[in-house]
Design a protein around this nucleic acid. Sequence first.
DNA 1: CTCTCACTTGAATGGTGATTCAAGTGTATT
DNA 2: AATACACTTGAATCACCATTCAAGTGAGAG
Lengths: 124, 124
Amino acid sequence: MPVNCSDAHAHRHAQAVQQGQSHALDAQTLARLTAFFKVLGDGTRMRILSFLADTELCVCAIAELLGMELSAVSHQLRVLKQADLVRSRREGKTVYYTLADDHVRQIIRMGLAHINEKRGENDA
Amino acid sequence: MPVNCSDAHAHRHAQAVQQGQSHALDAQTLARLTAFFKVLGDGTRMRILSFLADTELCVCAIAELLGMELSAVSHQLRVLKQADLVRSRREGKTVYYTLADDHVRQIIRMGLAHINEKRGENDA
DNA sequence: CTCTCACTTGAATGGTGATTCAAGTGTATT
DNA sequence: AATACACTTGAATCACCATTCAAGTGAGAG
């Protein structure tokens, strides 16, 4: 699917294209990064992270907070865990989940900073 | 869809649940935050951002770099623009895109830090 | 004012992924 | 060992969204 862009300024592209490629991240890193953000790009998962911000919670409690079935919650927790965003700890029959580390809180805080900044611009 | 969790330790939940709710973000903020991360959770869009890290590029050049059609690129640039991640500038017939601000670079850097940290742990 | 170029927009399509239902683990309790 | 509980896992369904194709702007050139 080549671009049907005339050669008129093809050389200008060539230059820019080189620039664009030069510092671009390698494919694998980019894929990992994308996958990471994709995990954060889901309402249910973000709500779970938000709940876990202060406290550790068992799956049961999370499901109650979300008003969703245990199964659905478990599936999402699996995704969060694979992305190293949460950790789990077993105590008897119950499994407790926590945020993996402060890194997660930082990233969420940065996201918040971004959207708040933009909201401010729109108001101005 | 209530949780079929016995009342055995319902009171323990109640406590945890309150904790979980107390500092949780309000629904609208959470929705905006989720939407923001969702935009970053796409391979094509991340590649575009990666290309724009150093240089401004016209749609045509981006399409060439991606090996995709102009139309597809334009659609994605629209999404990125609505999320305030990129800005556009018209010069004659050509439209040039740039990263909106350094904020974007910071967020991507934080994402990279996270996945690199985790990669390190797995190696150890 | 017509034509081409660079891009945008709208409608249709196809693939991905979140949720559900049903069945399976693991851990205590009796 | 049998039952109950807290959770996990797999298969199926359904909605959403990225891409494509086709048509529509806007700006300069002839």
